[in-house]
Design a protein around this nucleic acid. Structure first.
Lengths: 192, 192
DNA sequence: CTAAAATCCGGACGACCGTACCACTTCCAG
DNA sequence: CTGGAAGTGGTACGGTCGTCCGGATTTTAG
C-alpha cells in the first residue's frame, strides 16, 4: 500500500552517464562565467541555467545547493588563475607581475577577491582560499628558486597580493604600483 | 481639477527637524551594526528598520536607495576604523599592529574588506576606499615620523594591509604574521 | 490661527530568489 | 525484453527583497 518512494535519486557522486557529466560541467562553467562577470551575487540558479541553456531544475539536480555550486565555481576559478599566473611568471619574470594584473580581466579578478573575502565567513571557502595562497607562494618560490619557507619570499608574496588588490579596487596610476613592486623585489632578493 | 501633487517631498539635504536628524542617524548606526555583524548582504531595508526600531518606510524616506545607505554606512565605518587604528598605533607602536587585528571584532573587519572589494565595481564606494587607504597611510606616516611620500612607507602600508586581510580570511597561526610584520618593519626602517 | 510644507507609516506591488515536486523520458543491468 | 534506476524539465510554493503609494499627523511659516 505504501510504495515507499525514495527521493528522486540525485547523483551522490559524479553522474553515471556521459551526457550528464557534460551537462554538469556546462553548468559549472556557466557559474564561473557569471562569477567573473557580475560577481558573487550574479550566480543564481536561474542565471546559471539560462547561461548554460539548460532548464532551471538541472541546477538543483547536479548541485545540492547554491552554496555548493559557488564553492565548486570558486575552486575552478582558483585553479585556472593559478595556471595563468604560473604561465605568465615563467614567461615574463616577476617584475612584470603588475602588468599581468593590468592586462587580465578586471571583473574576473574582482570576482576572485570577492569570494576570497567571503571565505572569511565560510570554512569550505576558506579551504579553497588557502589553496590559492599556497599555490601562489609555490609559483613564486619556483620562479625565484627560493625555498617556500623563506620568510623573505613569504613577505614578497604578501606584498604582491596587496598591490594586486589595491590596484584592482582603487585603480591608482600603474606606475606607482610598478615602483613599489620593484622595491619589494629588491628587499626580497638582496643583490646576489 | 488637477491638484498636481508634488512627490512626497523627501529631504534633499539634511532633515530640517531635530527629531528627523536623530532618526536618520539611528538608521545609519543600525546599518553599520548590521554591516559589521552579517556583512554586506545583511543590510536590507527591513533589517535596518527593525534594528533601529523604526518603521520600514523610514529607511526609504531618509535614504533614496539601498545603495546610498550602504555607501554612507561604509563611510562611517571607515572613519571609526581610522580613529581606532590611530589610537591603537600611538599607544602600542607599529609592531603591535597584528595584535590589533587579532583583538578587534572579526566580523567587523570582514565587513570592511567586503565593501572594500565591492568598491572595485562602484565609483562611489571606490572614493571611500581611497579615503581609507590614504587615512591609514597618513597614520603610519605620523607614527613613524616619515613623509607620506616615502616609498618605503608606502610599501610597509601595503604589506601590513595584506597581512591583515590574509590573517582575517585564512586564519593562520598568529606568530607567522607577527614575524612577517617585524621583517617588513626592518625593511622599511633601516637601522637608524 | 491657518495653510503649506515636512514628516510619518501601514500596507501593497512586482520582481527575484532557492528549492521542491512529480510526471515524463531515457538508459542499462538482468 | 523489462523493470527499476538515472536523468529531465515544466511548474509551483513560500519567502525576501527594494521601492512606492497615499492618507494621517506634526511642524513651521506667515
Amino acid at each position: 500500500m505504501n510504495p515507499h518512494h525514495e527521493p528522486p535519486a540525485r547523483p551522490r557522486t559524479a553522474p553515471a552517464q556521459a551526457r550528464s557529466r557534460h551537462r554538469r560541467a556546462t553548468l559549472l562553467n556557466a557559474a564561473v562565467d557569471l562569477l567573473t562577470q557580475g560577481g558573487f551575487a550574479a550566480v543564481t540558479h536561474r542565471a546559471v541555467a539560462h547561461h548554460a541553456r539548460l532548464p532551471l531544475a538541472a541546477t538543483t539536480y547536479y548541485f545540492t545547493s547554491r552554496h555548493q555550486l559557488l564553492a565548486e565555481a570558486f575552486a575552478q576559478l582558483v585553479e585556472t588563475e593559478l595556471a595563468t599566473t604560473r604561465a605568465w611568471l615563467t614567461r615574463h619574470g616577476p617584475a612584470a607581475l603588475i602588468d599581468q594584473v593590468a592586462a587580465a580581466d578586471h571583473t574576473r579578478q574582482l570576482g576572485l577577491w570577492e569570494l576570497y573575502v567571503h571565505a572569511g565567513r565560510d570554512p569550505v571557502l576558506q579551504h579553497i582560499a588557502r589553496r590559492w595562497s599556497d599555490g601562489c607562494l609555490r609559483i613564486l618560490a619556483d620562479t625565484l628558486h627560493l625555498p617556500q619557507t623563506d620568510p623573505r619570499l613569504r613577505l614578497l608574496y604578501t606584498t604582491v597580493s596587496a598591490l594586486w588588490l589595491e590596484h584592482l579596487v582603487e585603480q591608482r596610476p600603474l606606475d606607482e604600483a610598478r615602483a613599489l613592486l620593484t622595491l619589494a623585489l629588491q628587499n626580497a632578493l638582496p643583490p646576489t
